[in-house]
């Protein structure tokens, strides 16, 4: 009996197939950059337009206290949040989809489904928790909770995707803890985590993976 196979090629093939069959690898660095940009835009809109550069003061029910009746703080913040969320979701979805097409990989694979599920199960609990904080007037903890739950969601999802996502997860969670301690700097740390960190991570991923493909 002779065997045509080359053991080192075989082992490489086995390793590749194990990874490709169990992990979602079509993540694009560009989607990190897009998500970060939406977060930065959202934070800028919140601070400079809705809060008028920090001059607008509001109470525990997010109602303006120093500008009289004609405020649109709540609806403005809500619209802004929806803008950031939908922009981030759509752009990252599209960029990952395009990336998978470019690399000739299937997009909506069982591992992609598992990854999305493991991400969004934790994120929805976090989202509900943040809305409940708002309901009870604990605004100062919202930014911290978003960072913490987002980090936990990423950590949960990282087992179905690239391992280095866990580094992003721990960064977000550390910022979340910082924001819990320095709760007056919530918006700043939120912007740092969801904006700047995403962009840095996205650029690093882009040069590490996307450019090679």
């Amino acid at each position: 009996m002779t065997t045509k196979s080359n053991p080192s090629e075989d082992l490489k093939h086995i390793r590749q197939m194990m990874e490709a069959s169990s992990k979602f690898l079509s993540l694009s660095g560009l989607s990190g950059i897009a998500v970060g940009s939406f977060a930065l835009a959202g934070a800028a809109i919140a601070y400079f337009i809705i809060l008028k550069g920090g001059t607008v003061k509001y109470n525990e029910f997010i109602q303006v206290v120093n500008y009289g009746q004609n405020d649109h703080l709540r609806s403005g913040m809500l619209l802004n949040a929806l803008f950031v969320l939908s922009g981030a979701l759509l752009s990252s979805w599209y960029l990952c989809y395009r990336n998978s097409k470019k690399r000739n990989q299937k997009f909506w694979t069982p591992s992609a489904q598992k990854m999305v599920w493991s991400l969004f199960s934790v994120l929805s609990v976090g989202g509900a928790f943040c809305l409940l904080l708002v309901y009870h007037g604990y605004f100062k903890l919202v930014a911290a909770s978003m960072l913490l739950f987002y980090g936990l969601a990423l950590l949960n999802a990282s087992k179905y995707s690239m391992q280095n996502i866990s580094a992003l997860a721990y960064t977000q969670m550390s910022l979340g803890l910082l924001a819990t301690f320095f709760h007056n700097y919530g918006l700043l740390l939120w912007t740092l985590g969801f904006g700047v960190v995403h962009i840095i991570y996205g650029v690093a991923m882009y040069f590490k993976y996307d450019r090679k493909a």
Binding site: D10, H13, I14, R15, Q16, M17, M18, S21, S22
Partner: peptide
């Protein structure tokens, strides 16, 4: 080999 690798994990 591919089938086996996918089924292993």
């Amino acid at each position: 080999l591919g089938i086996m690798s996918a089924l292993m994990v």
